[in-house]
Design a protein around this nucleic acid. Sequence first.
DNA 1: CAATCTTTGTGCACGCGTTCACAAAGACAT
DNA 2: ATGTCTTTGTGAACGCGTGCACAAAGATTG
Lengths: 213, 213
Amino acid sequence: MPTVSSEELAAAAGVNSAKLRKDFSYLGSYGTRGVGYDVEYLVYQISRELGLTQDWPVVIVGIGNLGAALANYGGFASRGFRVAALIDADPAMAGKPVAGMPVQHTDELEKIIEDNGVSIGVIATPAGAAQQVCERLVAAGVTSILNFAPTVLSVPDGVDVRKVDLSIELQILAFHEQRKAGEEAAADGVVPPVAAKPHRKGPDGDVPAVMPA
Amino acid sequence: MPTVSSEELAAAAGVNSAKLRKDFSYLGSYGTRGVGYDVEYLVYQISRELGLTQDWPVVIVGIGNLGAALANYGGFASRGFRVAALIDADPAMAGKPVAGMPVQHTDELEKIIEDNGVSIGVIATPAGAAQQVCERLVAAGVTSILNFAPTVLSVPDGVDVRKVDLSIELQILAFHEQRKAGEEAAADGVVPPVAAKPHRKGPDGDVPAVMPA
DNA sequence: CAATCTTTGTGCACGCGTTCACAAAGACAT
DNA sequence: ATGTCTTTGTGAACGCGTGCACAAAGATTG
Ligand SMILES: NC(=O)c1ccc[n+]([C@@H]2O[C@H](COP(=O)([O-])OP(=O)(O)OC[C@H]3O[C@@H](n4cnc5c(N)ncnc54)[C@H](O)[C@@H]3O)[C@@H](O)[C@H]2O)c1
Ligand SMILES: NC(=O)c1ccc[n+]([C@@H]2O[C@H](COP(=O)([O-])OP(=O)(O)OC[C@H]3O[C@@H](n4cnc5c(N)ncnc54)[C@H](O)[C@@H]3O)[C@@H](O)[C@H]2O)c1
C-alpha cells in the first residue's frame, strides 16, 4: 500500500507539515500513525470533500475570443466539469459549431439552465453585458459564476462570484518588477524613485499590506 | 479641489476605514485632516507606487486559442501594458498576423526579449512546453511570468511567477456549490453526503482551512 | 485669533491562523 | 507479547493582521 507522510507532502507543497496535518484533520482521521496516509484513500477523501467526484455541468456565455478558447480547453473535462452549452447573443453565431458543439442563442438561456440543472455559469461577454447576463443566469437558477468581464457583478446573497482579472495579474507582476528595479538602483547607490520619500514600512517590513501576495 | 474621505472610500470598497487609512499611510501622508484625500493626487500616488505610470512591454508565448484571445484583448493596453511580440514554435504560424501583429518564431525569442527590454512574459503554450519556454525566457532576461499552462514552473530566486488556473477557479465554485447543497439537505432533515461523517469543524467553524476564500 | 468641527494617522488590544512540541497510536522487529 | 520506532493528531503558545478608539492636525467659522 503506497503511503505518504505529512512531512513529504509538506516539503513538496512548500508548507509547514503541522499545518498540513491540521488541515487534513478537518476532513477526518485518515492517516495511520507511524506510517502516513494511504495515497489512494487520501486522494479519494479530498476529492470527495472538494466535490470532484461529481460531474458539474457549466454553461459559457459570450463565445468570442475568450469564450471560444475556454470552450476548446480540455482541462475542464478532466477535472469533472462538462460544458453543457455555449450561449451567445449574436444571431450570426447561432448554430455555428465551436469545439464540436453548436452555439445557442441567448433566447434559450433559461431553458438550457433548467433542462440541464446547471448551477455554474461562466461569463465571457463584454463588460457592458455582464451584469445583465448575470441577472438572467441567477434568475434561471445559477448560483455560482466565474466572471471574466472587467466589471464587479452585484448578486443576491447565496450566489458566489469569482472574478478573473488578467490585467490585475499583470499589474501585480509589474509592481514586484518595479520593486526589484528600485532595490537594484538602491544597491547601486542611486536613489530609487519608489523609495525616494520613505515614510514607513509595511507590517512585514517590505511589501505594503494593500498588495496581494 | 475634489476630495474623498477614508470613510467614503471604505464604504465603496466594503472594507474597514481604519484599515484603508493604515494602508494609505504606508505610501506616505497624503491626506488632509478634517478634509480627506485629494482625489487626483491620491490616484497619482497609488498609480506611481503600483507601477502604473510606466509602460511595461510584455511578450506572449504560445499563440493558440488562449494566446490569440489574449493578444486580441484590449484591456491590457489600457492599463499600461504593451504587447511587444507574439511568439510561437509552429513554423506555419510565423509571419501570420494575429491582432494586427505578425507572429514570430521561437528562434527569435532571445533577440526579441533583449531588443525590447522585456521583463514580463506570458506563457500560453501546452503544459509540456511550459517549463522549457520559461527557462528560455528567464535566461533571456525575463523576471516575471504569468503562466496559464497547468504546470508548476520552477524558477531561480528573484523571478516571480503567477499562475492562472481556470480549473481551480471552477473547483472552488463547485466546492461552495456542494456545500450549499449539503446545507439545504441538512435543513430538510436529510443527512448531507459531505457532513455524513462529522469529525471536527474548521477554525471559522465553517469552511476547512485548506480551502481558499 | 480663538473656538469648533471634521478627519487623518496611529498606538494598542483583540482575535485568528500558524507553528511548536508532545502525548497517543499503531506498525514492526525481536 | 513486549519494546522500540515512526508519524499522526492536537493542545498551547506565538506572531501578525485587523479594528477600535483617540490625540493631533488643520480647515473653517464667528
Ligand atoms: N480576450 C481575453 O484574453 C480577455 C482577457 C481578459 C478579460 N477578457 C474579457 O472577457 C470578455 C470577452 O472577451 P473577448 O475577447 O472574448 O471579447 P469578444 O468581443 O471577442 O467576445 C464577446 C462575445 O460576447 C457576445 N455577447 C455580447 N453581448 C452578449 C450578451 N448580452 N449575451 C451573450 N453574449 C453576448 C458577443 O456576441 C461576442 O461573441 C470581455 O469582457 C473582456 O474584457 C478577455
Ligand atoms: N484555452 C483555454 O481556455 C485555457 C484555459 C486554461 C488553461 N489553458 C492552458 O493554456 C495553454 C494554451 O491553451 P490553448 O487552448 O491556447 O492551446 P493551443 O494548443 O490552442 O495553443 C498552444 C500553442 O502553443 C504553441 N506551442 C507549442 N509548443 C511551443 C513552444 N515550445 N514554444 C512556443 N509555442 C509553442 C503551439 O504551436 C500552439 O499554437 C495550455 O497549457 C492550456 O492547458 C488554456
